[in-house]
Amino acid sequence: MINFAHGEVFMFGAFASFFFARAYAASGFLNSQPIVSLAILFLSAIAVSVGVAVLLERVCYRPLRNAPRLVPLITAIGASLFLQNSAQGFFGSQTRGYPRPSFLEGTVTIGGVSFDKIDPVVIATSIIVMVALDLYVKRTRTGKSMRAVAQDREIASLMGIDVDRVVVVTFVIGGMLAGIAGVLYALMFGQVGATMGFLPGIAAFTAAVLGGIGSIPGAAIGGFILGISESVGPYLLLLGFRVPSPFELRGVITFSILVLVLIFRPGGILGTGEAEKV
C-alpha cells in the first residue's frame, strides 16, 4: 500500500501553521518572539497533520487492511484528491504568501558561496529529526514492533503485537514528520497552496524507492540525492545541449530517476533488493 495522500497531510500541516504565521506577522509577534512563534507554527502543523494522518488511516486504510492491493491504492489516490479539493474549497485555489521571521530573511555567505539563511536551518532540522526517528525505530519497543509489522504483519500478530496500534503509531509519526516538513517547505519557498503537497509527495515517494522502502537512512540518502539531482541535474545535464529553460525540466529528471531505479534496482540503494513492497 502506498500512501499517496501523504503529500496532502503535509499540505494541511503547512496550511495550519500559515494561519498562525499570518496572524503573528500582522501583530508583530513573529519578529518580536521568533523562537516562540516558530515553536507554535511547528506544533500547530504537527497537530493538524497527525489528526489528518490518523483520520486517513482510520477511515480509508484500516477497513481495507485485508483487501486486494489495488483497492487501498485506489483509495489512497481518491483520499489524496478529496483532501486536495477540500483544501481548494475551504482555503481557495490561489497560493498565499507565507511570512518568514526577519532573522531567517536574506542570505548568508560562507566561503564565497551565498545562500538563503533558511537553507541550513532546513537541513539541520531535517537531520536532527531523522536521527531521532532512526533511534526511536531502532531502540524502543514500539520501534521494534514497527519493524516487525513491516517485515511480516501476520507473524507479528501471532507474536502478540497489536498490529492496529502499531500502524496508528506509524501514521502518527508520519503525520508529525509531514507537519515539520510542511512548515520547513513553506518557510523555504515562502508560500502555501492547496496543491503544494502533490509534487513533493510524488518526489518523496521516488526518494523512498531510491533509498529503499522501510529504511530510514535509505530514505535520507534517497531524499538528499533526489533533491540535489532536481536542483543541480537540469543545469548540469541540459545546459550544454542549449535547452532554453533547463530548470523547468526538473520533473523529467525526478521521474526518469524513478523509472531507472525501478528497472535497475527496484529494492533501492539500501533496500533488500526485493520489489514486493513497492
Binding site: A181, A220, K277
Partner: peptide, 22 residues
C-alpha cells in the same frame, strides 16, 4: 538541493514506513 532533499527525506521516511507497515 540539499535543503529540498532534506524536506523530501522528512516526507519520504514517513511514506516509507507507512508503506512498509501497511
Amino acid at each position: 538541493g540539499l535543503a529540498l532533499g532534506a524536506v523530501y527525506a522528512l516526507i519520504d521516511s514517513a511514506t516509507a514506513w507507512c508503506t512498509a507497515s501497511c
